[in-house]
Structure formats: structure tokens, C-alpha cells
Design a protein around this nucleic acid. Structure first.
Length: 937
RNA sequence: GCCGAAGUGGCGGAAUUGGUAGACGCGCAGGUCUCAAAAACCUGUCUUGCUCAAACAAGGUGAGGGUUCGAGUCCCUCCUUCGGCACCA
């Protein structure tokens, strides 16, 4: 026979003080033992239960351990996940590790320990710290991107993209250090020098792997519309994709006989430019090629060759960052060659300048100095002609007036005019004439205060038959003419460039490719995946890809002919690993069960699991199809929370991989994250970004140790809106601890007689609180939700009577007892402070721990009667005169707030209102039922 | 330079989306308890004026203008701070 202590006996045992450390670990163990947060299995007979996939951006497990910034997002999703479970949703809320990457490798190089080891210990630390905060993750889903069981499928995705023509290899410039003989990431280039040896970093063309994300540019742009994401993030993605619509226009080269600097190469007959402003075509006075343009040398005239070669070398030596940072200082070299303007047929000089980038458009730009600041700066520096062909509406009107005033010669439009910076150039824009009449000159423009360059739209001038048109009409007219004469076409360009995924590094997923002298480049057969990272590698950087130094890894047989072959030695960008992990969570515990680990994989043969239909040798069978039911059940992610620093790359890459898998009909959804919210950074006490060097880092372990996990959680949520950045304040933490402590005392020190007593007011407050908190949780406004709970506590504390004050204690069975109110409150508190709510609920439940049911498995409170009518009685009705509040009355006093006439009568009788209105006549009365009445006098 | 977010007490921040500005917390001040302190609890706390005080009145959300019966909230101009992109033709 078990002994069950009575409620009062329990009360006697409760520690008088609130000491969360006494019970937090206990409940964490309880939750784990009872699988309280286990992801529900999807059952075919309950298809109506709605699912909710709530995901954090998984962390990179650094050796520094958890940072106070991490728990901010994790607490937010945890509250939301717990709330969703209480609302009856099937919830998937997993956690994993973004374990590959450069920092681990660099750290490993520094301390001489293998990155697998350092990563494993970092993960252990992270997991311990995360667990201490009592998050409701289902740890059976835990995944690690550096686990072969995981990266096998990263490699599978590579294979798939390769087969679909979305992965390809090409030469691309990379930061290269000659002395270290290695490729450097942008972060490793400090002021143009290698951070290790301080040698100059140059741009070197290297064969690298790319994913063809540009194939999805339009989809990636269009589908943003239907996502519930912060507008700023959407905008960031839009800008990154950088769609612009314009025209590609052909400029014939002037025939220069055999003067080409490089006669070995065929000289192009024409150059194509891309422009978004074809309406300024007549303002073109030169062309500019990017230094890397492959036509540069064949176009350059012999006399200009030495200078050109020097310039190309110089451009190559500049990193992209440097090139950008040089900003406005334009440099360039004349090729000596000329192109023919497609409309005027006049020769225009061709230059090479590094302000033109090869990677965008055609690598050739039409120079319109009057209407582009860069072209203007370039023209000014090299003395090129500047021809205004578009002026603002105001300038146009002014000139019109001047003309008609001076010459009395009618309208400004239909003129055929020309202008030159120096008054020398003559463009035959007039069809039958070499000269135009009445050119609009720069002097004229400056006299009316119109300055160049002018980039806006307006009206065309000096444009022959196009003069006088507004910019849009001019665009259309020129566009039409160009298309008819077949010298150009409409085109859409994107800034987005293909995703470079090659890394000449060790700590990443190997790219599953084999090169054979006979058969060329081949995929590793799917049955041979994963291509395991060798552990006999000296991963320290010495020049080549580290994997090349592992003979075991490097030398293989060709999968086709069986001859000698070598493996691809580059690894994949870690962003590849993190761009599908949200899918893996859907089936990960099953996956881990099926693939019984690294040992089998390393033996070279993948062991079949006899109990499963899932055979990883089978190329038709991959987890995406084998677990398609799990994937289609859980995905896409319903709420995704993480830092704003991933605004562009991670989110865009994940969207791309999702779309690629969707297009390959491997998954049934084409957007991974339906709702996205960011978390703001937590700053140090000094309001600065936390960093070791500043010494202002707050360690979450210390906070948990000192105040308990629930206080930590509450404080991080109470600081402010999750998206804002906000400074840490230790006094604020104490305030949250005090709040929990006050709850503790309310629950443990209130007499049982009082608890059993009916308290309608407390019940009403609790009912209002429930609805208010629920609304806030849905919008992730946890700061105000907590504030409302504090307000509730203040009010309830005031409502609890002393024992002596109770005249006739009604120990009713009515639901309106204080005890019931408190129990409801605990459910509201539970998502925020899960340990304290659990402990207090346990105490109130008056049961043995063996029979105890966790509060986190309870349903969110619902009320039989609505609180509306009750709360209305407390609502304040405003009486205003001329929009100023004069009197506040409760609806209870007024009773009739939805009737205008009666309310008006009542309010006009109020003494204060009469005083205000004395001697005035009411012009107007504004009445809003249940809110206010305003007398305008 | 372009794009984005934001400016509210001594501080972090609220404000039903056009309707009581400053909720809630911190800090500070006063008090209760105590030999004392800490803790805990209670009270007060935008500014100014008149006041012992209460009450009352006026002003007040970066600056200036506008719309409105009514603006922290909407519109225009400007200033400041932070974040992202950066020669994208």
C-alpha cells in the first residue's frame, strides 16, 4: 500500500524560499524519462490533427559554448511549441548541429586536435547547456551534418543536382595567396593581404564547382510574395537576386583592318551591351569593356597593346573587395578602336575600365555620361563628350518657355537638336542633315540650374525624331525601332550569380566525383556513397586541397572502366549541408535506426538492415522517397526562427535546394519556411556587441546557476521584442526572478481555506489573462505576454483576502474557486517557465509522482462562458471636448454606451463637461459605441 | 551612394493599429520588519505651475509643417542612430 501525503503535508514540505535549482533537474529528468516531448508518430487514421513544425536555425557548435544570444531564439520557439502542443497540434520541434566548417578546422590547426574531436566536445557542451534550459526538443531527432549518415545524403543531393544539370564545374576567380599556395575565403583576406603570411592576395582562375541557382532566379523572386517573412528580409533577397529589365543592343565595330593587338584571336564583328535605359541610347559617346572581357586584346590596336596588358595585370591583382572599395576613382585605357553607333552611325571610342564587371550583363557597357554618374566620372577624367538626351520635366518646361519667349517660334517639341560638351561633335540625328538645328547646350542647361549627370526620367532632347517624348514613350519607340532593325532585343538580367560550392578544405562533405584519364569526370555511384572523409589526412593548409594528401582517399578506381582514377579533392561549402537539414528532421530518428552508424559505412559495404525495406544501395531508394510520408506530413516548416545575419545566404540557398528537389519531383513543396521571424542581438551591459576582447560576454551557465533556467528564459523574453537588439541588464534578471518567487509564495503560502473559496474577480482576471496571453503568443510578443502575467499577479495578490477577512468561506464545487484560477494560471505560465509551473502543478495536484501527469501534456484552458460581458464592466468610456479627454467613466456607470442619444444626454449632464462647454455651442458630436464621445464646440 | 529598420521618462520598453501616452520591469525615494544590514513586502516616481497636500491646470512621444473632432500612430520636408548591399550599366 502506497502512502499518499495530504495536501497540507505537501505544503509543509515545500521549501519556504523559491529555490529553482532544487527542482529543475528533477523535472528535466522526468520529461526525458516519460518522453513528454516525443514527436507524435503520424497515424493514417488521424489525418485531421493539424501539424506544426517549429524550427530554430541550428547552431554552429563553437568551442566557446553557448552564448546568451542562442537561448533567446530557442526560448521563443520553445514557448511557441509548448503552446501549440497544448492547443492540440502535432508538433515537430527538433535540434541539431551545423558541424562542418572553417572555424572548427582553424581551431583544429591551432591546437593540433582533429576537428571531429573538437566538434564532438563542442556539441557535448552545447547539448548540456541547452538541456539545462529545459527546452522541449525531441532529442531522438538530433542530427549532425558531419556525421557520414547525414552527409551521405548531402552528397546524394549533389549527385541529383549534377544529373539535373544544376551542378557544373567552371573556372572562376578566387582569392589566392602565392606564398601559402592556397585559396582564401574573403574573411581571410585582410586589407588585400593574406592573414597568415601577409603576402599580397591575387585573383586566380581556378576550376570550381557551382550550383546553378540562377536557373531559379525568377521562381525565387516570385515566390517571396506568398511567404510570411519580415519585409526587410524579403527586400534583402529581392535585392540580392537583383532583377532588372532592359535591352541588349549590338554595336558594330568599325573596320580597322589588321591592326589588332592579338591577331591570333578572331576579332569580334560587334559588341553587345545591356542597358536598362535604351531611351538614353542617343547619349552614348563611348563603350567600355571589362578588363576580363575575352575580346579585349583582339579589339585593342597594336599601339595600345603594352598599356592594355599592364592594365589587365593591375586589374587582376585587385581583389573584388579592393575593386569595390576604390569606389569613385575611375581608371581605364583606350583600345584605339571604335564602334559604330547603331542609330547615328557615328564612330565612338571603345575603352577598357575596371568599373565594368564581367559577371553582370555582357561585360560591356554603353557609356552615357550625361545620365550615369560612373560614366560621367569616367568621361570627365578622360575628356570624353557628354551629351544630354534626357532632362527633367521642370527643366524641359523652363526651356520651352524660354524658347517661346525669346524666339516666339512656337513649341519646343519636334525639334531636331544636338548638343556637345565642347560644341564640336555633330551627330546626324536629323535624317537628311549632318547638323541639327537649335541644339540644347550644356551652358543652357546649367543656366537654368539643371546639372549633370541626371539619372531620373523626364523628356528627351537632342534625340532627333525621339526628341520631345517622355522617357517611357522614348524607351518604347527606340525599343521598337531596334527590334525591327534587329540590332537588339528585350532582356531580363539578374545580379544573382551561381553558387560557388567548392572549398579547398578538409572539414566538409567531400564532393562525390571521380576523374578518370579515359572516361573523364564521373559521379561516384550512389551505392558507393558516402564518400567518407579520410582520417589519415594532415589537414593543415600547405597549398593543395588537404584531401589530395590522403593516398587512400585520392587514388581510386574509375567506376566505369576500373582504371586508375582520382577523386575530387574539394569539399562542399557548409551552406550546402545546412540547406536541407530541415527536411532531414522529418525522418531522422528512423534514419539513425536504419543506418547503424559509421562502422558499417567504413567497412566499405553498407550493411543491409534485414528488417527494413529501405536499402541504401538501391539507387531508386533514397530517404526522400522512402520517407516521403514523413516529409509531406511535417514540411514545410511552419515557424522558423533565427538571426538576421542569415537574411540572404542560408535562406536563399535553402529555398534553392527545396525548389530543385521539388522540380525533380522528390518533394512535394517548393518553399521551405512559411513563416520566418528574426531574433535581435543581445548586447553586453555596456550596450556593445558581446565579445571576448571587450570582456562583456554574459555566460548563460552562470545565469542558470545563479537564478535558475526559468528566470533566464523569462528574462530573455521580457527584455523586449524578439526582433530588436537589446542590452543585457542583470537587475532585469533579478526582476524576473522576483516575479517567479512571488508566484511561488502566492501558491505555497495561501491558506487552503482561501484557495477553496469562490473568487469571481480572480477567475475573471485569469480568464482575461488567458485570452490576452494567447494572442501575444501567436504573434510571438512574449515581452507583453509576461508583462500581462505580472499585472495579473499584482492584481490577484491584492484580491486574496486574509484568513481573518473571510466571513463565510464558500467551499463550493464551483469552478470559480481561487484554486482553480491558480491552476489555470499555471497552464498559462507553463510554456514560459516550464519547471516552476510543473513543480507548482505537482504540488497542487495532490498526487504521487508515479501517477503524476505533466502539465505540459495538458490542454490550453478554454472557458465555457465568455469573458466579454464581464470585462466590459471595467472598460473605461471617454468623454471628450474638442478631442481632449475631460472625464472617464466606466461602462458600468453608464450602462448604455451603445446608444448615442442617451449617452449624449448622460454626458452633457456631467458637471465637468458642463463647465467646459459653458458659453459654447456644440457644432458636432462624435460617438463611438463603448469607446468615447467627443463634443466639438 | 542605394535599400531597410528605428527615434517615446534616469534605463529596457508598453499603447487594443487613429481614440486614457508612459502598461510591465529596472533604477531611484520614502516606509514596514530588524539591534543593524540584506532579503521580502508596501507606497510614490513624465515635466511645469498653484499648493503642506490633495485636487486642478498647462505642456509633453527626434525637429518643422500638414490631414483629422482627435496623431506616438497617417502624409510631406529635414535631422540622428543602427543594420544590409555596394561601380549590377
Amino acid at each position: 500500500m502506497r502512502y499518499f501525503p495530504t495536501y497540507n503535508e505537501y505544503m509543509a514540505k515545500i521549501p519556504h524560499k523559491f529555490t529553482p535549482r532544487d527542482f529543475e533537474a528533477k523535472w528535466q529528468a522526468f520529461w526525458e524519462a516519460h518522453e513528454v516531448y516525443k514527436t507524435p508518430l503520424i497515424s493514417p487514421n488521424s489525418p485531421s490533427s493539424p501539424k506544426s513544425y517549429i524550427l530554430d536555425m541550428f547552431p554552429y557548435p563553437s568551442s566557446a559554448g553557448l552564448h546568451v544570444g542562442h537561448p533567446e531564439g530557442y526560448t521563443a520557439t520553445d514557448i511557441y511549441a509548448r503552446y501549440q502542443r497544448m492547443k492540440g497540434f502535432l508538433v515537430l520541434h527538433p535540434m541539431g548541429w551545423d558541424a562542418f566548417g572553417l572555424p572548427a578546422e582553424n581551431y583544429a590547426i591551432k591546437v593540433g586536435v582533429h576537428p571531429a574531436k573538437t566538434t564532438a566536445s563542442s556539441i557535448a557542451t552545447f547539448k548540456r547547456q541547452i538541456t539545462a534550459l529545459g527546452f522541449s526538443y525531441d532529442w531522438t531527432k538530433e542530427l549532425n551534418t558531419s556525421d557520414p549518415v547525414y552527409y551521405r545524403w548531402t552528397q546524394y543531393i549533389f549527385t541529383l543536382l549534377y544529373q539535373k544539370g544544376l551542378a557544373y564545374k567552371k573556372k572562376a576567380p578566387a582569392n589566392w595567396c602565392e606564398k601559402c599556395q592556397t585559396v582564401l575565403a574573403n574573411e581571410q583576406v585582410v586589407a588585400g593581404k593574406c592573414e597568415r603570411c601577409h603576402n599580397n592576395v591575387i585573383q586566380k582562375e581556378i576550376e570550381q564547382w557551382f550550383f546553378k541557382i540562377t536557373a531559379f532566379a525568377e521562381d525565387l523572386l516570385r515566390d517571396l510574395e506568398r511567404l510570411d517573412w519580415p519585409e526587410s528580409t524579403k527586400k534583402g533577397q529581392k535585392n540580392w537576386i537583383g532583377k532588372s529589365e532592359g535591352m541588349t543592343i549590338r554595336f558594330e565595330l568599325q573596320d580597322n583592318k589588321q591592326n589588332s593587338a592579338d591577331s591570333s584571336q578572331k576579332r569580334p564583328k560587334f559588341l553587345e551591351v545591356f542597358t536598362t535605359r535604351p531611351d538614353t541610347l542617343l547619349g552614348v559617346t563611348f563603350l567600355v569593356l571589362a578588363p576580363e572581357h575575352d575580346g579585349v586584346l583582339s579589339i585593342t590596336q597594336i599601339d595600345n597593346k603594352p598599356q592594355m596588358l599592364k592594365y589587365q595585370d593591375k586589374a587582376r591583382a585587385k581583389s573584388e573587395l579592393q575593386r569595390a572599395s576604390l569606389e569613385k576613382d575611375k581608371t581605364g585605357v583606350f583600345t584605339g578602336a571604335y564602334a559604330i553607333h547603331p542609330l547615328t552611325h557615328q564612330p565612338i571610342p571603345i575603352y577598357v575600365a575596371d568599373y565594368v564587371i564581367m559577371g553582370y550583363g555582357t561585360g560591356v557597357v554603353m557609356g552615357v555620361p550625361a545620365h550615369d554618374p560612373r560614366d560621367y566620372a569616367f568621361a570627365a577624367k578622360y575628356g570624353l563628350d557628354i551629351l544630354p538626351v534626357c532632362i527633367s520635366k521642370e527643366a524641359y518646361n523652363k526651356l520651352s518657355q524660354e524658347k517661346s519667349g525669346n524666339k516666339n517660334s512656337g513649341k519646343f517639341e519636334n525639334q531636331r537638336e544636338i548638343i556637345s560638351a565642347k560644341g564640336q561633335i555633330q551627330f546626324p540625328q536629323a535624317e537628311n542633315n549632318n547638323k541639327l538645328e537649335n541644339p540644347v547646350l550644356i551652358d543652357q542647361l546649367s543656366s537654368i540650374g539643371f546639372t549633370l549627370p541626371y539619372c531620373g526620367k523626364g523628356y528627351s532632347v537632342n534625340c532627333g525624331k525621339y526628341s520631345g517624348l517622355n522617357s517611357d514613350d522614348c524607351y518604347n519607340k527606340i525599343s521598337e525601332d531596334i527590334k525591327i532593325s534587329q540590332i537588339g532585343r528585350s532582356e531580363t538580367k539578374y545580379k544573382l550569380r551561381d553558387w560557388l560550392i567548392s572549398r579547398q578544405r578538409y572539414w566538409g562533405a567531400p564532393i562525390p566525383i571521380i576523374y578518370c584519364g579515359k572516361c573523364g569526370m564521373n559521379l561516384v555511384p550512389e551505392s558507393d556513397l558516402p564518400v567518407l572523409l579520410p582520417d589519415d589526412v594532415d589537414f593543415r593548409p600547405t597549398g593543395e586541397s588537404p584531401l589530395q594528401r590522403s593516398a587512400k582517399f585520392h587514388q581510386v578506381k574509375c567506376p566505369k572502366c576500373g582504371g586508375k582514377a582520382r577523386r575530387e579533392s574539394d569539399t562542399m561549402d557548409t551552406f550546402v549541408c545546412s540547406s536541407w537539414y530541415f527536411i532531414a528532421f522529418a525522418f531522422w530518428e528512423q534514419m539513425k535506426g536504419l543506418e547503424s552508424g559509421i562502422k558499417n559505412l567504413e567497412s566499405g559495404k553498407n550493411q543491409k538492415n534485414p528488417d527494413s525495406k529501405f536499402k541504401i544501395q538501391d539507387s531508386e531508394n533514397n530517404p526522400f522517397s522512402f520517407f516521403s510520408k514523413e516529409i509531406s506530413t511535417w514540411l514545410p516548416v511552419d515557424l522558423y526562427v533565427g538571426g538576421a545575419e542569415h537574411t540572404v545566404l542560408h535562406l536563399l540557398y535553402s529555398r534553392f535546394i527545396t525548389k530543385a528537389l521539388f522540380k525533380a519531383q522528390i518533394i512535394g513543396f517548393n518553399e521551405p519556411f512559411l513563416r520566418l521571424r528574426h531574433i535581435g542581438m543581445i548586447l553586453g551591459l555596456d550596450g556593445q556587441k558581446m565579445s571576448k576582447s571587450r570582456g562583456n560576454v554574459i555566460n548563460p551557465d552562470e545565469i542558470v546557476e545563479k537564478f535558475g533556467a526559468d528566470t533566464m528564459r523569462l528574462y530573455e523574453m521580457f527584455m523586449g521584442p524578439i526582433a530588436d537588439k537589446k542590452p543585457w541588464n542583470t537587475h532585469g534578471v533579478e526582476g524576473c526572478r522576483r516575479f517567479l518567487s512571488r508566484i511561488w509564495h502566492l501558491f505555497t503560502e495561501t491558506d487552503k481555506q482561501i484557495l477553496d473559496c469562490e473568487q469571481a474577480k480572480i477567475w475573471e482576471l485569469t480568464q482575461e489573462l488567458t485570452m490576452a496571453v494567447e494572442g501575444d503568443i501567436q504573434e510571438l510578443k512574449f515581452n507583453t505576454a509576461i508583462a500581462k502575467m505580472m499585472t495579473w499577479l499584482n492584481a490577484v495578490t491584492g484580491e486574496i483576502p486574509n484568513k481573518s477577512q473571510i466571513q463565510n468561506p464558500k467551499t463550493s464545487q464551483n469552478s470559480l474557486t481561487t484554486l482553480n484560477s491558480l491552476k489555470v494560471f499555471l497552464k498559462i505560465l507553463a510554456p514560459f517557465a516550464p519547471h516552476s509551473a510543473e513543480e507548482l502543478n505537482f504540488i497542487l495536484s495532490d498526487t504521487d509522482i508515479k501517477n503524476y501527469k505533466s502539465i505540459h501534456l495538458e490542454k490550453w484552458p478554454v472557458f465555457s462562458q465568455k469573458a466579454d460581458s464581464a470585462s466590459l464592466s471595467n472598460k473605461i468610456f471617454l468623454v471628450e471636448v474638442n478631442g481632449r479627454v475631460i472625464e472617464r467613466i466606466t461602462n458600468y456607470e453608464l450602462r448604455i454606451t451603445n446608444n448615442k442619444d442617451e449617452t449624449e444626454k448622460f454626458c452633457l449632464n456631467l458637471p465637468k463637461i458642463q463647465a467646459k462647454l459653458a458659453g459654447r455651442t456644440i457644432k458636432k458630436t462624435i460617438f463611438i459605441p463603448n469607446k468615447l464621445i467627443n463634443f466639438v464646440a
